[in-house]
Design a protein around this nucleic acid. Sequence first.
DNA 1: ATCCGTCAGAGGTAT
DNA 2: ACCTCTGACGGATCT
Length: 697
Amino acid sequence: MEDDDGQDYVDKSRVLNVRPLRCLAPIFPSTPSFPSFPHPQASSPFMCPPPAGHFPPGFASFYPFSGYPDSQNMQTPMPFGFNGSIPAVPINSFRSGANGDAGSSGRSSRNPGPSQYEEGDGYSDWVHVNDGEDSSKAATKKKRTPKRARAGSGQDINVASSDVDVDAMVDKIVESFNLMDFDTFKRADGDKDSVGYIRMIYDLLRRKLSQIEDSKESTPGVTRRPDLRAGTILMNKGIRTNVKKRIGVVPGVEVGDIFFFRMEMCLVGLHAPIMAGIDYMGLKVSQDEEPVAVSIVSSGGYEDNSEDADVLVYSGQGGNINNRGMEITDQKLERGNLALEKSLHRGNEVRVIRGVKDIANPTGKIYVYDGLYKIRESWVDKGKSGCNVFKYKLVRLSGQPEAYTVWKSVQQWKDGSTARVGVISHDLTSGAESIPVSLVNDVDDEKGPSNFTYYPGLKYSKPVNSNESSTGCGCQGGCLAGNSSCPCIQRNGGNLPYTANGVLVSQKPLIHECGSSCICPPNCKNRVCQSGLKIRLEVFKTKDKGWGLRSWDPIRSGAFICEYAGEVIDITSAEELRCVNDDDYIFDATRTNQSGEGFLNASNETLKIPFPLIINAKHAGNVARFMNHSCSPNVFWQPVLRENSKECDLHIVFYAYRHIPPMTELTYSYGIVPPDRADQRRKKCLCGSAKCLGYFY
DNA sequence: ATCCGTCAGAGGTAT
DNA sequence: ACCTCTGACGGATCT
C-alpha cells in the first residue's frame, strides 16, 4: 500500500463510484488501524524453513482405523515392523504441555488464538447419530422439496444405489471407529479428534459409494457424485462439526490440512458454501448486523493472482464470469463482495483455502488450508471482458505454520529452479525405482543411514508353495469393476478393492491383486501396488528419531504408498536376531494390532496372512524400512496377495490412513507383540502424539 | 494426455 | 427461489 505506486488509491476511489447501494456507507472510519504497515516484526523472514522443524510429528492424534469395515468382513489392522537406525535420542522438543487440546502437539507456532469476534461457543456440533431427539438436523434439511418431477430419469439414481443399504453401511462405519467418548464430542466444539474422525468417515463413505457406482453400468447423462452424496448423508446424520460459523481459527483444523472435496470443508466447518468461493456471516455491530467474510476459496475460476505466496489478490463473485452462456456483467457490491469489503474495514481475519491441481488425479483439485489472512485493500478492475470485477488484496498473517509455501517449494524442487537444501543424494535407490527418492539431512552432519542395498521387492531364500490352485483372470482389457465373473474380483468379495483412480476402498483381511497368472495388462485396476512408487518420497533426518520418510506430494486417504521390501526370513531366524537385539528393520506380519486407544478389535477378524511372513530389511530393503513408528500413525499396512499359480506371492503394502499434506512424516504403528513375547524389549516412543503410549516394540 | 462444454447439484442465503 | 471459484463425463483437439 504505502509502498505501492499509489495507483491503488485511484482504483480505490472507483470502488466508491461503483458502489451501487447503501450497503457501503462512505466509510473508512474506524478502521481498526492495522499499523500503517509492514508486518510488525515478522520475526525472521523464514529463510531457512527448519527442515523438519515445521513439520514435526504435529499431525494426528486421533484416528483409529481399526476395523475398516469391509463390505463383508471387518478386521483390524495391526501395523508393526521396525524402525531402524540410530537409537532415538530423547529430546522432547515438541511435547505440548498437558494442554487438553488433544493433538496440537507439534506445530511450534500455533494459530493466533480465537478471534475476539467468536461468540457463543459451540455446544452441539458433533452430534450423535442415532440420537432419537437429535435436533440439529431437524432444523436443517428434511424438507428437501421433491423438485418438480425431474425429467423422468432423475429419481432412479436413488433407487439404483439403494440396493445396498447405505444407511446401515454408514452406521457400521461410524461404529467401527469405536468412538467411546462420543458423548464428549457431542458437547465439544470441533477438536482435532472429531475433525479427524469426521474426515476419515467421510472419505471412507465416499470411497465405498464410488465403489458401488463403479460396479454399475454407467448410465449416460447421469452424473455420479459420491462426494456430494456422502456429504449429504453425513450432514443429515449430524456427523459434522463447527456448525456455527466463526471468524478465525476453526478448532480441530490445522493450517496445512488438505482436502479433496469442497464437501469435506463443509463438514468440518472450514468453509460452508459448497460451491461459492466466499463464505460470510452476519456480525453484530451495536444494534445492526453487517456481513463479514470468514473464508474464501481461491481455485482458479476467476482471474486471481498472487506473485508472492503470502499475498493473494482475490476476485469478487458474480458477473457470470464462470457461467458460460450468460452474458458477462459488472459485479455488484453485494453478498460475498460486500462481506469482503466490510471485512476490509473491520480488519477481521479471513481464512484462505487455495485450490491446486492434483497431479495424481488431473481431473481433481486439492484444497490447501493456508491459514488466516487479512484484507488490505480493494479496488475495481476491468476484467478481460471489459466488465467490472472487484479485487481484494489479502496478506497472510505471520507466525503461522507453512502451508501453501511448501507446495511452492516442492514445485521448485521438481522443476529444478531451486535446490533442495541438505540433499545428500538425489536418488538413494540408484535407479532401482522408477522415480527418485531423495536423501536429505538438514538438521545435522550425519551423512546418511548405515549401509544397505536398495532392493524394491521381496527376496525369498526358498519359494513358498501355494497350496491353493489359483487361476488368474482372463480380463483382456483389465478387470472391470462390474464384471462379477472375474475370478480376481470374486476373491475380493465381489468388488474391486480399489476405486477407479486407484485408491484402496477399505482395509480387508487380505487383498487379492492380479498377478502373473492373470492375462490382464499392467494397467489393470487390480494391479495397484505392483508397479513401483508413484509418490515422490524423501528419506530425511528427523530431529530425534533417526531417519524418517516423508513425501513431496500430497497423499490422499487410501492411496498406495509403498510395500515393505527385504529378505524373507523364518521365525527361528527372527528370534535369533531378536536375542541379539539386531531386529531393527524387521517387519513381522504376525504381530497383532495395537490395542487400546485408536485401535480396536472390532471383530474377531484379523488380517489373513497365508503364512507367517517376516521380512528383514537390514541388509536389503526399500524406503519402507525408514518409516518410523507412531501411536497416531497416518499410514497403515495391509497384506496383499498376487495371483500366482505356483508360488504364494504375498506382500505387505502401505496405504494412507488419511490425507497427508506434503512434507509430513509418514508413520505407521508397529503393533504389539504376542503375549508370549511380551518380555521383548520396548523402545521409547517419541512420536509426540497425544495418545502416545510412551513405548513401542 | 489436455481442453472445453454440459449439467445435475448441495447448502446457505435471501425473499 | 436464487446463487455459486463443483466435479464427473463426453467429445474435440493436440503433442
